[in-house]
Measured scan of single mutants.
Amino acid sequence: MDLSALRVEEVQNVINAMQKILECPICLELIKEPVSTKCDHIFCKFCMLKLLNQKKGPSQCPLCKNDITKRSLQESTRFSQLVEELLKIICAFQLDTGLEYANSYNFAKKENNSPEHLKDEVSIIQSMGYRNRAKRLLQSEPENPSLQETSLSVQLSNLGTVRTLRTKQRIQPQKTSVYIELGSDSSEDTVNKATYCSVGDQELLQITPQGTRDEISLDSAKKAACEFSETDVTNTEHHQPSNNDLNTTEKRAAERHPEKYQGSSVSNLHVEPCGTNTHASSLQHENSSLLLTKDRMNVEKAEFCNKSKQPGLARSQHNRWAGSKETCNDRRTPSTEKKVDLNADPLCERKEWNKQKLPCSENPRDTEDVPWITLNSSIQKVNEWFSRSDELLGSDDSHDGESESNAKVADVLDVLNEVDEYSGSSEKIDLLASDPHEALICKSERVHSKSVESNIEDKIFGKTYRKKASLPNLSHVTENLIIGAFVTEPQIIQERPLTNKLKRKRRPTSGL
Rank of each mutant, 00 (worst) to 15 (best):
N113D: 11
M18S: 00
Q174D: 01
D185V: 08
S153T: 08
R131C: 06
T69R: 06
A17S: 15
C39K: 00
D2Y: 07
D67V: 15
N103C: 11
R78D: 00
G129K: 11
I42V: 15
S151E: 10
K135A: 08
Q174A: 08
S114A: 06
V191K: 11
L147G: 09
L137Q: 08
L165Y: 05
S123A: 02
S140V: 09
T161P: 14
F43Y: 13
L22S: 01
E141L: 06
A102E: 13
S127H: 05
H41G: 02
Y130G: 07
V35L: 06
S72V: 06
V191L: 11
Y105N: 06
I26Y: 12
D120C: 01
I31V: 10
Q19E: 13
Y179F: 09
R133L: 07
P145G: 10
A134C: 09
L182S: 02
Q94E: 11
L138K: 14
D120G: 08
L165C: 11
K110Q: 15
P34S: 01
P173N: 02
S177M: 13
L3I: 05
N113S: 07
I124E: 12
L52E: 05
K135N: 05
L138G: 07
K56N: 13
A108D: 09
E111W: 01
S153G: 11
E33G: 02
E84V: 10
E116T: 05
T176C: 09
T150L: 07
I31R: 02
L52V: 05
L152E: 13
A5H: 01
S157W: 13
I124A: 05
L182T: 14
A92C: 09
Q148K: 05
C47G: 00
L73Y: 14
E141C: 01
E23G: 15
I15V: 05
V8A: 12
V83K: 10
I89R: 00
K56A: 06
E149C: 05
L73T: 07
V178W: 05
I171T: 10
A102V: 07
E111T: 09
S123R: 06
P115K: 10
N16Q: 09
A108Y: 13
L22D: 01
P142G: 08
H41L: 00
G160Y: 03
L118Q: 04
